[in-house]
Write a protein that binds this DNA or RNA. Sequence first.
DNA 1: GCAAACCCTACTAAATCGATAGGATTAATA
DNA 2: TATTAATCCTATCGATTTAGTAGGGTTTGC
Lengths: 137, 137
Amino acid sequence: MLSKKTKYGLKALTFIARTGSDVPVQVGEIAKGEHIPQKFLESILLTLRKAGILGSKKGKHGGYYLRKDPSEILMTEVMRVLEGPIAMVPCVSLNFYEKCDDCPDEDSCSVNKLMIQVRDSTLEVFKNTSLKDLSER
Amino acid sequence: MLSKKTKYGLKALTFIARTGSDVPVQVGEIAKGEHIPQKFLESILLTLRKAGILGSKKGKHGGYYLRKDPSEILMTEVMRVLEGPIAMVPCVSLNFYEKCDDCPDEDSCSVNKLMIQVRDSTLEVFKNTSLKDLSER
DNA sequence: GCAAACCCTACTAAATCGATAGGATTAATA
DNA sequence: TATTAATCCTATCGATTTAGTAGGGTTTGC
């Protein structure tokens, strides 16, 4: 299941991208427009800023803005920041690999093989979808 | 993330399929062979039996067996029984659909569109993989 | 200097996960 | 028929994660 954090984060990014300008967008505005609890959204946008996807401006007329062109912000990056590993099991994760404690041999593990296929097909979708694509729908 | 329940369930099914016979396989045997806590595995196999994927025989020399040929047991079915919805959000789930409380309009929701793509590509993998495929690896 | 915005830490209620415990029931067999 | 070995079933539990909330601190524009 996709966490609310990720879902809200994607909606917020789309919201910002859709304004189409470099003027910072305020948290309150996004929260209202997308029906997201403001305080929760604050922490999500903070995560996205720390990851380098968003920039921020403090004080009056402050807010958040995109640090790259929407077409250059890929879902692989966004999903990894918000949701963590794309793979369904750590033992097939490219960026967050971890060995299973059960399972002495990955090569003979049927789950491993299946989950590699799922990972690759999901990755294909995320790799080929940018924030620009999201915001144009 | 894939739950341990699902992971263990898949391994157990693979184990049973690999015996290649109709003789019931005991829980203890599977637990030992796949390094799964026996009591936990018991409850998982019970779930699979109630879903009609496994059959069971009680008493001495009892155990679990497949109710269909491995080639007819598809990952779509197994995953839905063990893990629940294949979709990452309920609003794009085919078998467990639910409307989002935020999000007034699904058609204009960027998350919705993205998750439909992910669902379809994952579904494609599960639809084309049977227990026979798993057990032959 | 004050109001409006982001920044940061800590806390919490609820749900889920990964088991474990303890026995009830059933079936083969000696 | 008694024993034993297996599945069946319910309940409980500690740890973790999730989805927030609370309460300010800090910075900036006017």
